[in-house]
Structure formats: structure tokens, C-alpha cells
């Protein structure tokens, strides 16, 4: 009985002291700076510049560095990259005729950029990719009809495209002119259709 009476008054005391401490904590937060960052408009520097250099944003491709090895397309678990390389039969020079990245499929895992031998495929710190149309999320790094000769790395010379801890330029934003996409189902996964470029060297 005595313990019950004791408990009764202990409860009252505990209620008062714990509520006192709780109120003191919440009140003290009125005298601290709020941690909110008022993204996107009321900040001093754009968020893209505040992100660490390792941040995995939208894929960015420097086609000038691409050696046409097709490794990125092979490692991507979702098949969101699509490349095509043609060989000029006269000069034996290989050209990249297509380098498309479908951002809507990409889950920014970083497997392609790690496997790229020259650092042509890398992540930018750009992440604002919202658009009204999914088709706009396909970024075409080689314009239709354009032919870019493959990069030939010089032995012993460090490739210029390997900055690991430096901020990198933003991705090319080409949301406005969406290229037509014709997806095809291959083995249950969406792969892009081979659009029959002349003298296709590689096909997956």
C-alpha cells in the first residue's frame, strides 16, 4: 500500500520534472539558427556548387574522350546508355555516331563511370531533371547525323578525363529538343532498338 501511495506522488513529480525539461529543450530552439536551407531561391550559392565532388548526379559524357569500348553500356544494369560506333572502311577511322543516356531509367549507381577507362562518362553535380515529358529525359550527346572520331589515348600520358576529386562541369541540358525514342523489350528488360546505322561495328 505504501509503495502505491509513493508511486502516486512519484508519478506527479516525474510528470512535472520531465515536462519542465522537455519545455526547456523546445524553448531553447527558439534561440538557435534554423537548419533549413531555403532551396531553391533563397540561398547564396546554388546547391549544385555546395555538393561534394563525388556526388553522383546526372550522367555527363565527354564524347571527345570516348574510345568507343562500349563498356558503359555493358555494365549498366538497366541499359540506360546506348552507344553506336561505325568504322570508315577507307581510312579505318572509327566514329561514334550515337551516345544517348536515358536519365529516366538511370539509378545513379556509378557503375558505368567507374568502368570507363578514360573518364568520358562521369557524374555531374546536376540533379534537377524534372520535366513534363519523359522523352525529354533522354540526353543525346552525339547529335543525329554527327560523327565524332574516337579518342586515342597516348601511352604514358595521363588521360585528361580522370579528375576524381575535382568539381566537374554540368551536364549538357538539352531538354527542349527531345529525340524520338523507340524502346524495345529484350529479355524482359528495356533495351533500345538497333536503328540500323550503316556498318554497325558493335551490337549488344
Amino acid at each position: 500500500m505504501s509503495s502505491t501511495v509513493f508511486d502516486y506522488f512519484t508519478n506527479i513529480r516525474n510528470a512535472f520534472t520531465s515536462i519542465f525539461h522537455g519545455l526547456a529543450v523546445t524553448f531553447s530552439y527558439l534561440f538557435r539558427k534554423p537548419t533549413t536551407i531555403q532551396y531553391p531561391d533563397r540561398i547564396d550559392t546554388p546547391v549544385q556548387q555546395m555538393l561534394p565532388p563525388l556526388f553522383r548526379g546526372i550522367l555527363e559524357v565527354d564524347v571527345g574522350l570516348c574510345i568507343g569500348c562500349n563498356l558503359c553500356e555493358k555494365t549498366c544494369p538497366l541499359g540506360c546508355l546506348r552507344t553506336a560506333v561505325v568504322r570508315d572502311p577507307e581510312t579505318n577511322q572509327r566514329y561514334i555516331t550515337r551516345f544517348d543516356v536515358d536519365i529516366s531509367k538511370c539509378m545513379v549507381c556509378g557503375l558505368c563511370s567507374e568502368n570507363c577507362p578514360t573518364g568520358a562518362v562521369r557524374h555531374s553535380t546536376e540533379f534537377e531533371a524534372s520535366t513534363a515529358n519523359m522523352v525529354n529525359l533522354v540526353i543525346r550527346y552525339v547529335k543525329p547525323g554527327e560523327r565524332i572520331p574516337v579518342h586515342k589515348p597516348v601511352k604514358g600520358e595521363e588521360s585528361p578525363g580522370l579528375p576524381q576529386n575535382e568539381p566537374i562541369a554540368r551536364a549538357h541540358k538539352e531538354w527542349d529538343e527531345p529525340p524520338p525514342v523507340d524502346p524495345d523489350q529484350v529479355r524482359g528488360r528495356v533495351r533500345w532498338k538497333n536503328d540500323g546505322a550503316p556498318e554497325e561495328e558493335q551490337s549488344s
Binding site: 519542465f20 519545455l23 526547456a24 529543450v25 531553447s28 534561440f31 538557435r32 539558427k33 534554423p34
Partner: peptide, 27 residues
């Protein structure tokens, strides 16, 4: 006395986490 204790507790709470005092009411 309770009010004084409360003020002291509040100041201690801010100091403990080494947050600077920030009095701006409007943000």
C-alpha cells in the same frame, strides 16, 4: 525561482551542443 531555473536550463541547452545564440525572430 522556477522561472529562473528554467532560463538557466534553456541557456545550458543551447550551450551544451555549442550552437551559437541566434535571436532573430523572423527569417
Amino acid at each position: 525561482l522556477v522561472l529562473l531555473l528554467f532560463v538557466r536550463r534553456t541557456i545550458l541547452n543551447v550551450r551544451e551542443l555549442q550552437d551559437p545564440f541566434y535571436f532573430k525572430v523572423l527569417e
